[in-house]
Design a protein around this nucleic acid. Structure first.
Length: 912
RNA sequence: GCCGGAGUGGCGGAACUGGCAGACGCGCUGGAUUCAAAAUCCAGUCUACGCAAGUAGGUGUGGGUUCAACUCCCUCCUCCGGCACCA
């Protein structure tokens, strides 16, 4: 690119960008963000203004952003929640709150361990390196936290209290060990909680999950299912989406438990059903292959081999195959019968792949006439079908039915319940079950207990010892922490926890009897770490207890919690659970940890997929694209992408085939990330922050546009120019025009705009955080300021109004673009920083409009506009409207039937 | 299948509690500036017809309520997310 340097020097905005500094224009000072930004970052750091004040009487505000996993590098998509949180925090500080805005690191977890295996670097080193890099990134964004409260979950000072929490749960019977089928990820070589399995695959590595029988540690979250569900109603500050996700996840269903008896034995088979009204239609019963009774029936009987073979085969199927609704139903007759407690009928007992052990009771009653799965199963294995509910206006016949009837109707073939509406019979039948002690009304939840054992190294050791004499023994509290040994061989594992290979760790003595004992070698799920960290921020260095209840009760529930909605059924449900447990043990005084939950939408960007190479391409490796992005912005946006891209036929630079342009979540693997480090170098952190907030409503998904970033930069440049242009003029001006001063109309109008903007931005800060509209309001204000040609003409009061307007712009923008506003504020002669300045209040008088424009409609169609004094009486307005010549023309002499007046807005004249 | 959310110019998106649809930004067009370009500044930019004033249409589809509907109700379509052989 010949002459780039000289062009850069000579040119305006663009040159400034290229030079990484800014530009000279007409004014004397340049917008040198590269100098300004570090200057203010240092100043804030030195001032300690973001430290919470423990002894202050000010109202408290706890602004919390979800702490990240220290993965190494943040991209601009990650920035959204931190920037949003920082804007809110800065606003609250200016509003005079005692602010708590802490940050920490969710530092245990698999990636560190995988990196260790791949790159031969210790997980701790890997983690610490990443933390220091990410901390620098936060600082370069101008995102401030009270770093004196920083915590990292991988430090013994923190995980000691994880172990304490586990022991607390253990003592109260909420942590228990159970042998049973668990989700096993063959690639991560560890078990996973139900929450971490997505569509039968590992959420982390997408390997298909296998089922294994293992003895594992669980937390009894199911004991809290009902409260976790019911209390969602209290969470007014949560998004509907997050609440619905949790509701679905908890999955409450009401029904009845009915006890069938295995013929010729004392064995009772409880069955859960949501349709007790169909109990008279039961023609068979199905047990999950894992059901203990299946193995018992197989026993040593003549069908043992056949049964066990079937069970093994089904269990070998992956979770995905087995639980897909359209996979084949397969079953096996167990050569046993059960007795229906209400009819005393004898029906066949089967086992089938479609019954699962971990829902309900692991047994399903087969009602083929009224359940589609049972219907398909019965047809396949030629089992009888019995109709017990008839829909109005038609007669079901088992011989001719082609599908189950699952709707409402009248009971038939149901003994004394025959003739009742089924909805009514449901209650009656449940009553009868209860009276005969063969069943009861129950509620089942889909939520499963939380499996917390992980066969991995980089996590909190579970503080349990297995003694040959005493059995399972909790490590006494005074022996905590059980330290994670620094040197484990986490490379050679073969499904075992790496800790199992550390002799010095495993071999210990029983805390109770002193006999030889072995330590538990599994570590905890890292979601345990994050289920209470927000309590630890109040006393991060406390070494006598996990958290200071008194302080915690003062500061929590958290006023606003910002993070991604993807945590709704994991972290957020666990955190609510643990909080409720702590409440029950009277360690905290609140039942819900987060008053407001704000879920930011993710940021996506166009990616380039080459189908020939079967890989993603960087923009620069696509011919015809980089140019399109720089010169014709439309080419990179929205649906326009496809059209324009096709017209330009972007080609893969390596193979020449056409490239498919997609829109996807920013991700390293898709090669569509934008690095904040690069962006900050080119345009500055304020530009990135402004664009990130301006890109769209913060709770919605947004598309990153390289062109839009330039628009944001251009605006900051305009702000800089506007303020510096008037600097000399306002230096000695009053802060605002004196009350009652006689001002020209233009100045009065400007002041109105100033105060309306203050009102608008403040409302957004207190309301829904839609800063995209706040920013557009400030943009309008800046345009208004520029429109007035001479402020001197309005005398000292005019200059005061100008100063007032410029300062409003600076203060209102400061939560969004803190560096440039601090600099301009200082240039205006202020000694106190913006952060230490009070947020502006709007003037109720200045906001008032003396005249308003009224829309005039005839039969709902806009016909005219008139400007009136806002104090004008309704009758007067009516007369004015009817006298309006445009209205008269449309009316053509007809008499209005009605005239509707909406004060300050419009008048609608209704005619025949 | 069940439960959420969304659908508005060339693009991202505004629109209070039902009251002038398209704020603001991007892009585009024209002008100023410049030897020229970039940058910057000013103006225009929903569609159709019209020189214009204007007229008509317009917020996924079809209907309804209302003086008045992007907004409320019903039908359908599309997209995104969650749950799901869940008994």
């Amino acid at each position: 690119m010949p002459g780039a340097a000289s062009r850069a020097r000579a040119s305006g905005l663009r040159g400034g960008i290229v030079a990484g500094r800014s530009l000279t224009h007409m004014s004397e000072t340049k917008y040198e963000f590269a100098k300004i930004e570090p200057k203010w970052q240092d100043a804030w750091e030195r001032s300690g203004i973001f430290r919470m004040e423990p002894d202050s009487d000010k109202p408290r505000h706890y602004c919390l952003t979800m702490f990240p996993y220290p993965s190494g590098t943040l991209h601009v998509g990650h920035g959204r929640n931190y920037i949003l949180g920082d804007a809110v925090a800065r606003y609250k500080l200016m509003k005079g709150y005692n602010l708590l805005a802490p940050m920490g690191w969710d530092a245990f977890g698999l990636p560190a361990e995988n990196a260790a295996i791949r790159e031969d670097v210790h997980p701790r080193t890997f983690t610490e390196t990443n933390i220091s890099h990410m901390k620098k990134q936060f600082q370069s964004w101008g995102v401030l936290y009270d770093w004196s409260r920083e915590l990292a979950t991988c430090n013994p000072e923190y995980y000691k209290w994880n172990q304490w929490l586990f022991l607390l749960l253990f003592k109260k019977g909420l942590a228990y060990r159970k042998h049973g089928p668990v989700n096993w990820c063959p690639s991560c070589e560890t078990v996973l909680a139900n929450e971490q399995v997505v569509e039968g695959k590992c959420e982390r590595c997408e390997a298909e999950i296998e089922q294994k029988d293992l003895e594992q540690w669980y937390l009894k979250i199911t004991d809290y299912a009902e409260r976790l569900l019911d209390d969602l109603d209290q969470l007014e500050g949560w998004s509907e989406q997050a609440k619905t996700l949790q509701e679905n996840w908890i999955g409450r269903s009401e029904g009845s438990e009915i006890q069938f008896v295995l013929e010729g034995t004392e064995d009772v088979v409880p069955v859960f059903t949501t349709r007790p009204d169909t109990v008279y239609g039961v023609t068979f019963l199905v047990l999950a292959p894992e059901h203990p009774l299946v193995a018992k029936i197989a026993g040593e009987g003549e069908h043992k081999d056949e049964i066990m073979e079937f069970v093994e085969r089904v269990r070998a199927e992956s979770r995905l195959e087995r639980t897909s609704p359209d996979s084949q139903k397969e079953g096996l007759f167990l050569h046993a019968h059960v007795i229906n407690p209400l009819t005393s009928e004898r029906v066949q007992l089967w086992t089938a792949n479609y019954a699962v052990m971990d829902y309900g009771t692991g047994a399903v009653m087969g009602v083929p006439a009224h359940d589609q799965r049972d219907y398909l199963f019965a047809r396949k294995y030629k089992l009888p079908i019995k109709v017990v509910i008839q829909p109005a206006g038609q007669t079901l016949d088992p011989k001719t039915m082609i599908q189950a009837y699952e709707g409402q109707g009248m009971q038939v073939n149901s003994n004394e319940f025959t003739g009742l509406p089924n909805v009514f019979a449901m209650m009656k039948i449940t009553q009868a079950l209860e009276e005969n002690e063969v069943g009861k009304a129950t509620v089942h939840y889909r939520l499963r207990d939380w499996l917390i054992s992980r066969q991995r190294y980089w996590g909190t050791p579970i503080p349990i010892v297995y003694c040959e004499k005493c059995g399972v023994v909790p490590v006494p509290e005074h022996q905590l922490p059980v330290l994670l040994p620094p040197n484990a061989d986490f490379k050679q594992r073969g499904g075992q926890s790496p800790l199992a290979g550390v002799e010095s760790f495993v071999n210990t003595s029983c805390p109770t009897c002193g006999h030889k004992a072995r330590r538990e070698t599994d570590t905890m799920d890292t979601f345990v770490d994050s289920s209470w960290y927000f309590l630890r921020y109040l006393s991060p260095k406390e070494d006598k207890k996990a958290f200071d209840s008194e302080e915690v009760n003062k500061w929590l529930p958290v006023d606003i919690y910002i993070g991604g909605v993807e945590h709704a059924t994991k972290h957020l449900i666990y955190a609510r659970f643990i909080t409720k447990v702590l409440y029950d043990f009277m360690l905290v005084e609140f039942e819900e940890p987060f008053k407001i939950l704000f879920n930011q939408g993710l940021i996506g960007r166009s990616s380039n997929w080459c189908d020939t190479c079967r890989s993603y391409k960087w923009d620069r490796d696509v011919k015809g694209l980089v140019q399109a992005k720089e010169e014709g912005g439309a080419a990179t946006e929205g649906k326009g992408v496809a059209a324009v891209a096709q017209a330009e036929e972007p080609e893969c630079a390596s193979c020449g085939s056409p490239v498919e342009i997609r829109f996807e979540k920013m991700s390293k693997s898709k090669l569509n990330v934008v690095s904040p480090d690069e962006l900050i170098k080119q345009y500055g952190a304020d530009t990135e922050r402004l664009y990130t907030l301006f890109v769209g409503p913060p709770d919605k998904e947004a598309e990153w546009s390289d062109r839009g970033v330039i628009g944001a930069h251009r605006f900051l440049y305009r702000v800089w120019e506007t303020v510096t242009e008037h600097l000399e003029r306002v230096k000695d001006a009053a802060e605002r025009p004196a009350a009652g001063a006689d001002l020209p109309d233009a100045i009065v109008d400007l002041r109105r705009k100033v105060h309306q903007t203050i009102q608008k931005v403040t409302a957004d800060m207190e309301g829904d955080y839609k800063f995209n509209t706040s920013i557009s309001a400030v943009m309008e204000l800046v345009s208004e300021i520029k429109k007035i040609e001479s402020y001197e003409a309005a005398g000292p009061a005019g200059l005061a109004a100008l100063r007032e307007a410029l300062e409003a712009v600076i203060l209102l923008l400061s939560p969004f673009t803190p560096h440039v506003t601090e600099e301009l504020w200082e240039m205006l002669g202020h000694n106190e920083s913006v952060l230490g300045t009070a947020w502006p209040e709007f003037d109720k008088e200045a906001v008032k409009e003396p005249t308003v424009e009224i829309a005039v409609q005839v039969n709902g169609k806009l016909r005219s506009r008139i400007t009136i004094q806002s104090t004008l009486e309704e009758d007067e307005l009516r007369k004015l409207v009817l006298a309006d010549e445009k209205v008269a023309k449309v009316l053509e002499g007809k008499t209005p039937k009605d005239v509707i007046v909406v004060p300050r807005r419009l008048v609608n004249v209704v005619v025949e």
